[in-house]
Design a protein around this nucleic acid. Structure first.
Length: 257
DNA sequence: ATGCCTCAGCTCCTGAGA
């Protein structure tokens, strides 16, 4: 079973690239973030035509998330239960016995800002809910655009970006707290090339110079960890014309013994 | 460099992203 996550920065713009990518990477589940379109504009037909069952939670202009799967998702949830949120950031479903959560974590803009405070509240609510969800669904994958780096290895310029957004100790505390629930960073279960990033700034030739951050993650539960056989960042779509600023991350999970 | 790029929208500038 292969699962992937990709922040597409507008599905309206990126739909042809997503369809192309799925044609060469027929994953079982793809979580999308930053659809930037309302539910009525979601291109469900285009995904159904290539054999995917879509679930979506859209929002005009900002945010918006979707789950595409080869077998239909069940027990679908939108956003974090018990956390009142005007933004469409989370979509969850059970696919082939695995609880899959696709999430677009808040950006946070700048430490000390209202948006940063919201990010912290959101992270606290997410953790409370995921902890609960794990008791019901031991086989769980939490993937998406986290907008947080684990440590300096995830940052192209750790000194220049020290304590800046996505790199603060406060954000990293929350990321470690998710790990402490019994989740594992798929990427670090395997040897990876140095300076592996999943996002590069559009400005200043960020991708060409590999000035990026690793902020898109796939966390797997303890029950799934022994079955994870590979995890990689696919930089190929970042080389497209008019690319998203994020690259897809893919994880492979072997069938249960 | 508060500046670099991209996207959406009450679109010819602004806010947001990261």
């Amino acid at each position: 079973m292969k699962l992937a996550t990709w922040n597409v920065n507008s599905l309206g713009v990126r739909l042809p690239q997503v369809l192309d990518w799925l044609a060469s990477n027929p994953v079982d589940v793809l979580a999308l973030q930053e659809l930037k379109l309302s539910d009525d504009k979601f291109p469900a037909d285009a995904f159904e035509a290539i054999g995917y069952h879509p679930q979506w939670f859209g929002q005009k202009t900002y945010n918006g998330v979707a789950l595409l799967s080869r077998t239909p998702a069940t027990e679908v949830l939108k956003n974090i239960p018990g956390f009142d949120d005007e933004m469409a950031r989370v979509i969850t479903g059970t696919v082939d016995g695995v609880r899959v959560i696709g999430a677009y974590f808040p950006n946070g803009q700048e430490p000390g800002s209202d948006k940063f405070d919201y990010k912290m509240e959101w992270l606290t609510a997410l953790r409370r809910w995921v902890k609960d969800e794990l008791t019901r669904h031991p086989q769980l994958v939490l993937m998406g655009d986290y907008n947080i780096t684990f440590d300096d290895d995830d940052v192209w310029d750790p000194e220049g970006l020290f304590e800046s957004i996505h790199c603060t100790e406060e954000e990293r505390y929350h990321l470690r707290a998710l790990i402490a629930l019994g989740l594992h960073d798929s990427h670090r279960l395997f040897a990876q090339p140095p300076k592996s990033f999943s996002w590069w700034d559009y400005r200043d030739a960020g991708f060409r110079r590999n000035r990026g951050l690793r902020i898109d993650h796939i966390l797997v539960s303890e029950a799934l960890r022994p079955r994870v056989t590979a995890c990689e960042i696919d930089k190929q779509p970042r080389k497209n014309e008019r690319p998203s600023d994020h690259a897809p991350v893919v994880v492979e999970i072997a069938p249960a013994a």
